[in-house]
Structures are given as structure tokens and as C-alpha cells.
Amino acid sequence: MSFTMNDTYDALPDPTTQPAFYEGVGVKRLLAWVVDTILIGVVAAIVASIPLFLLWFVFPLVFLVVSLIYRIGTINAFSATPGMRLFNIELRTHQGQRLDGSTAALHTIGFMIASAFFIPQVASVFLMLMSERGQGLHDMFTGVVAINSPGRH
């Protein structure tokens, strides 16, 4: 799989002519989310245990901070979290480029907000299942699309 990038707004692979980039991405994103949540939970538990287990009293806050650092850092570095990389998917901007730090941060914060409230969460899942490119609310807001990694099978 390969695609060319140009200066137009829609430099992403077309889901109609290049469906291989979008096949199974919804399920892979769900599985990646499970893997990432487990990894974040393990790291958060370790961090919460370091100062004589005192951070266990504020574990949800520790989990949130670890999640933000984990997601922003890995998406900035690889345009994917470790869970996404495991399932061979990555995030791209509407211009077909990998995400930079500010886009990774904006996408992560949008994801956190959408995940925190029931209606936006349900709307995101619905949109991922029904939209042409499988984008959730936070994806649409930031102009990001998840695709099968180009050149990796």
C-alpha cells in the first residue's frame, strides 16, 4: 500500500479507491484502546506506588496524567500509541502527514473530553462505525484520520 502526498486538503487515501487503508481500522482502534488502557493502568499503578502508596488516594488523577503523557508523547513520536502500533494503524492529518506535538496534544485532549461524557462518547463510536473514513468526534475536530500503516502489512 502506498499513497502520494500533495498540497491539497484531501491528501489522504480515498476510502472508495483505496479501501485497504481503512479496512478493519475501527476494530483495530478498539483493540488498541484496550491495550493502551492496560499499559496506562500498569504505569499509573507503578507511579502511584512509588511515594509509599500515597498517590493511590488520588489514583484517577494519576491515571489521567499518565494517560495524557503516554498518549501525547507516543502519538507525537510515532503518530500512534503502542496499542495502535501493535495493530498496524497510525494517525494522519487531513494533509496525510504524521501528527506533530500540538496536533497530538489537541487530539488527545479531544479524545479525553469525548470519553468523559456519555453522549459525545456514543456519538464518536457511532461516527467511527458510520463515517466514510471512520472518524470520531475528536478526529473530525482535529482533522485526524486513523489508517492502516502505509508500507506495513
Score class of each variant (00 low, 15 high):
I40L: 02
I40N: 03
G41Y: 11
V43S: 09
A45W: 02
A45N: 04
A45E: 00
I46L: 13
I46D: 07
A48Q: 03
A48L: 02
A48Y: 02
A48W: 04
A48N: 01
S49A: 14
S49T: 11
P51R: 01
P51H: 03
P51I: 06
L52M: 10
L52R: 02
L54T: 09
L54F: 14
L54V: 12
L54P: 10
L55S: 01
L55Q: 01
L55V: 05
L55W: 01
W56G: 14
W56C: 13
F57T: 01
F59G: 05
F59L: 09
L61I: 05
L61F: 03
L61E: 00
F63T: 05
V65D: 00
V65A: 08
V66L: 00
V66R: 02
S67F: 14
L68N: 07
L68H: 09
Y70K: 13
Y70Q: 13
Y70W: 15
R71A: 06
R71F: 09
G73R: 10
G73L: 08
T74W: 03
T74I: 03
T74H: 04
I75D: 07
A77Q: 12
A77E: 11
F78G: 02
F78Y: 13
G83F: 14
M84C: 08
R85V: 12
L86I: 15
F87Y: 07
F87K: 06
N88H: 08
N88K: 07
I89K: 15
E90S: 15
E90P: 09
E90W: 14
L91E: 05
L91I: 09
L91S: 13
T93I: 14
T93C: 15
T93Y: 15
H94P: 09
Q95L: 06
G96E: 07
G96Y: 06
R98Q: 10
L99D: 12
S102Y: 15
S102V: 13
T103E: 01
A104C: 12
A104L: 07
A104V: 08
L106M: 13
L106W: 10
I109C: 06
I109L: 15
I109F: 13
G110Y: 12
G110V: 10
F111E: 04
F111N: 06
M112A: 08
I113V: 00
S115P: 10
A116M: 13
A116W: 13
F118M: 09
Q121I: 01
Q121K: 05
Q121S: 05
V122F: 09
V122S: 02
S124M: 05
V125G: 11
M128L: 00
L129P: 01
M130W: 12
S131G: 02
E132G: 04
E132Q: 02
E132S: 03
E132M: 05
R133K: 06
G134N: 09
G134K: 03
Q135P: 03
